[in-house]
Amino acid sequence: MNTAVLRTEFRLLRREPATIFWIFLFPSLLLAILGSIPSFRHADASMGGLRPVDVYVPIAVLIALIMSGAQGLPQVLTGYRERGILRRMSVTPVRPSALLAAQMAVQGVAALASAVLALVVGRAAFGVTLPRQPAGYLLALLLAAASALALGSVVSALSRTTKVAGAIGSMVLFPMMFSAGVWIPVRSMPHALARVVQLTPFGAAARALDQAASGDWPAWGHLGVLAAWTVLLTGAAVRWFRWE
């Protein structure tokens, strides 16, 4: 990892207000809006006695990952390739892979910061307890972030232009949001549906985060699904990514 490139990419991210909004502010804003609905603050038996706002904190965290890894990253990477920025860097002693690595680090850190913000907003505004199994929560979060970045890299690998990347990005956005539980939390889904959704990266991540939030170590099955997706998607991205 080249630190000059990393610093530059951080600086450039700060100049993108739209990206900052969607990755960093939108998940917590959504949480604040949902939390301000009175019914979201009443304990619900169908959610194991938790309040909907409690359940929506991990979902907000996952939205941050979707916005950065699966939406932001492919746009940036495809644009860098399309406009010859990667080509220019490949005739310097620093390889263009440094730019990809820096982008992933920047997007990943922005998403994790957004996750922390969602936890803080949940705690401060609505009294949502912080994850009771922090190590398990962190592990699930890092694995979910890795799979989101890998997914974004695959989208970028398959897209020749930023337009295509945008189209693929919006096509996969809704399934990802759904599997993360934005409309129905995964824990409240009908059993058959939940079983399928838990095999997707964000479905598995949603369950793993739920478990760690309530104090259990996340099931190895869910972590395994996340790890498997990460390996599979990374392999596909490496296989198909074109530098120009």
């Binding site: 000059a4 530059t8 450039l12 620093v94």
Partner: peptide, 25 residues
């Protein structure tokens, strides 16, 4: 090298570009 078709990041300033590329060598 000066390539026939290439760009830099649109929001990178001239100074930042020169500093960044200096750091590569």
């Amino acid at each position: 090298a000066q390539l026939q078709q290439s760009e830099l990041q649109a929001k990178l300033t001239v100074r930042e570009a020169l500093e960044l590329y200096s750091a590569f060598y």
